[in-house]
Design a protein around this nucleic acid. Sequence first.
DNA 1: TGCTGTTTAGCTTTAC
DNA 2: GTAAAGCTAAACAGCA
Length: 436
Amino acid sequence: MANTAMISPKPGYPAASPVSMNTMTGMTGVGSMMNSYSSMSTTGMPASAITSMSGMTHTGMTGMSTMPSMAGMGMNAGMGSMGMSSMGNMNTMGSINGMNSMGGAMNNPAAMSMRYAQAQAANSIDRIRADKTYRRSYTHAKPPYSYISLITMAIQQSPQKMVTLSDIYQFIMDLFPFYRQNQQRWQNSIRHSLSFNDCFVKVPRTPDRPGKGSFWTLHPDAGNMFENGCYLRRQKRFKCPKKEAQRQAQKAAGDDGQPHENGDPNIRDPATPVSHPTPTDSVASDAPLPNQNQQLEHPQQVPTPQHQQQGATLHKMENHQLSPPHSMSSYANPSRPIAYPAASAAMGMSGMTGMHPASMLGQHPSFAHSHPFSINSIISPEHKMDMKAYEALGYNPYNMGMQAQGARPTMDYNSPMGPGEVTYSQLTPAQTNHAM
DNA sequence: TGCTGTTTAGCTTTAC
DNA sequence: GTAAAGCTAAACAGCA
């Protein structure tokens, strides 16, 4: 392999020299890794970090032999059902599954306790750091999921399928340490994504549930945004037909010189009261919407988990009498057992909610499938064997519909948080362009 | 006052 | 090459 990647620095990051992948040829499966990574777009890491990859040896990233402390990190127990041979597969399956395996271990009475595992992990991390031969992994690199994906994950894992903005923030930060920094930057993007994308529907609070901000849920027809449940780049953006028609109409009117309010079809006359849509309007009527996003006037018509589960093809919101959720927000609900510590993520949401992930995520193909980048794979211990099956079948998960997003999340062995967090240790040069 | 939400703009990356 | 998807920044308004 003689790949040479030019790295164009992002503002704020130092320029990096071209990285010779030859220096990495000793890494297991690095050839296919780089092929997969070459087209990743949305993830990033500091160019300085990728530069240091050139200094890596065979043993750096994936050679488990260079991580003599793995057993001490509790990974043996975690990987019990996978077998240590699967550790080698961390390259190709991503440690998200490894993380789930950890969760499986935690749920296994025979496995060591969480506290013991954490102590062991901390101990091992120290040893790893002390090991001069160990090359650090690229911890806390940007996950390969788009913001839309992350928002969708947050909503989907919520028992009520409805979360507040702050809940989304918390979910993301708890699951991905990368997002514990530069919060202003990505949180702005989250807000933008919520407002801009038709797939997210705003649900006002009810008077009995005062608080800041509205709830956000998924448009009932937006269930199939992510093919095979793979939460990477969407093939096609979900557009609400009615809103899209409105946009087209506005655009057409603008193009043919028709007058608009304030001269701009996109600017609402501030003096004109907003015509708040009825719940039916918000999805099914042609009533104008106050903005790009749809807003449900009556929260009691919010899709319940059952409705979400029934998926895009089965239901439209206006066709059902929906029950008000018992808890408007899983995060805001003080009764929720765990407020998203990383450990809970490692244990899988089923452990947190008491629900099987499959039932949480519904039977829609988008969520029922166990793509390695599906939310199931991220948060569920139930699918830890999926990638082994993929590999046994010669299935290349990075060469399917979403092949361009072939990032490989790995266990963050070097994380001060412990090995239960999802990080991404292999990144393409292209990713460096998006480094934060 | 800070958070939430909307909107616009410019840019990069990817798919076709 | 082009369109679409996605990211980031920023301005602004409304609200708790």
